[in-house]
């Protein structure tokens, strides 16, 4: 494991920040992901940034919505009856 990490290229904070959103959106793979994760192990600022963006994304995914209105349900029932 240690030997493998030696082959991971170090990246700058600037480069790491370019990859943050791909990372939190689960779109970062392979070498790019390993490089970022390696950077996050050693850079507190970038680590905190990633945690913040994850938290905000998670907050958005939990937004509550008013229950489907009775009016809409009736409109849709009527619409579906027409077809």
């Amino acid at each position: 494991m240690k030997t493998e990490k030696k082959h991971i290229k170090s990246i700058s904070c600037e480069e790491a920040l370019k990859r943050v959103f791909d990372y939190i959106d689960e779109h970062l793979r392979g070498k790019s992901r390993a490089e970022l994760e390696h950077h996050l192990e050693t850079c507190r600022h970038c680590f905190d940034r990633v945690e913040f963006e994850k938290l905000l994304k998670s907050r958005l995914s939990k937004l509550k919505v008013e229950a489907q209105s009775e009016t809409l349900r009736k409109r849709l029932d009527a619409l579906l009856e027409q077809f």
Binding site: S69, T71, L72, R75, L76, L79, L80
Partner: peptide
């Protein structure tokens, strides 16, 4: 409501 109904 309008948007959802129109889409359906």
């Amino acid at each position: 409501d309008d948007l959802a109904a129109e889409a359906v």
